[in-house]
């Protein structure tokens, strides 16, 4: 019991990302409204971003901008003092990708609406089946 509790508390960030990701996945699969699906898609991508950013955290470390960089005296820089910059770099890319996907998805949703005059998937499918 204690092990499980410790597991839950030690890794709470990871549990949150899994929850978010599952919410997004469920919305994509089960929701009927196309815009809700797009929102679900965005939640899914954000969950992955949360996961990556969680990897970068180090206890007792600060933001990865080297202090006193230009005041002459050369301090020894220790990696443990700064958080891991790599996941942040990767997620900057992933954020941009998710914004781009969101934009294109919204545009295509507009196109769909212009063609079928609804965003409810079952109504669209009904229109397609009986033209």
């Amino acid at each position: 019991m204690e092990d499980i509790l410790r597991l839950i508390i030690e890794k709470y960030n990871y549990w949150i990302y899994i929850t978010l990701m599952m919410i997004g996945l469920y919305a994509i699969i089960a929701k009927n409204n196309l815009v809700k699906k797009i929102v679900g898609m965005n939640i899914l991508q954000t969950a992955v971003i949360l996961f990556f950013v969680s990897i970068g955290v180090k206890r007792g470390a600060t933001v990865p901008i080297i202090e006193h960089a230009h005041d002459g005296a050369h301090h020894a820089i220790r990696a443990a003092e700064y958080i891991n910059p790599l996941p942040h770099v990767l997620m900057l890319t992933a954020i941009v990708v998710s914004v781009a996907t969101l934009g294109v998805a919204l545009v295509i949703a507009i196109k769909t609406y212009q063609r079928f005059l609804t965003l409810e998937e079952d109504e669209i499918l009904k229109q397609i089946r009986e033209p």
């Binding site: 990701m21 994509i28 699906k37 899914l44 992955v48 996961f51 295509i108 949703a109 769909t112 669209i124």
Partner: peptide, 22 residues
């Protein structure tokens, strides 16, 4: 119905890409 098909492709493709990234 191309936009609708494309939208479905976006959903599935994004899940696929997110899984790859994960």
């Amino acid at each position: 119905r191309a936009p609708l098909s494309s939208l479905h492709y976006i959903f599935m493709g994004t899940i696929g890409a997110s899984f790859y990234l994960l």
